[in-house]
Amino acid sequence: MKVLYFAWLRERLNRDSETVDPPASVETISDLMTWLADRDEAFALAIENRQLIRAAIDDELVDHSAQIANARTIALFPPMTGG
C-alpha cells in the first residue's frame, strides 16, 4: 500500500509518500503508525504526539481505529488549518 504524508509531517519525514507492505497483524491505522515508528526512529519522532495525527483511507477521512485491510492509499497528516 502507498502511504501519503502532508504538511509538517511530510517535512519532518523528508518524503511525501512511500510504499509499504506491513504484516497482516497490522490491522488498523493505529497499528500502522506503531509499525512505522518501530521501523524508523525519524518516524517515531515525527509522530511523537500521535493523537494529533489525522488519517484517510482511499481519500476518506477515518479514525485511528479504522481497518486498513484492502486499503490502496493511506494518508497521514497534521490537523487541518484551511479556510
Partner: peptide, 26 residues
C-alpha cells in the same frame, strides 16, 4: 460552511514572515 471546512478540509497553511517560516497551528 466556514466553521466546518476549517477543521474538516485537508488544507495546511504555512506562513512566511520576518522571523522565518512556520506551519500555522490548529
Amino acid at each position: 460552511l466556514m466553521d466546518t471546512l476549517k477543521t474538516n478540509a485537508p488544507f495546511w497553511k504555512k506562513e512566511e514572515g520576518p522571523s522565518g517560516t512556520k506551519w500555522v497551528d490548529a
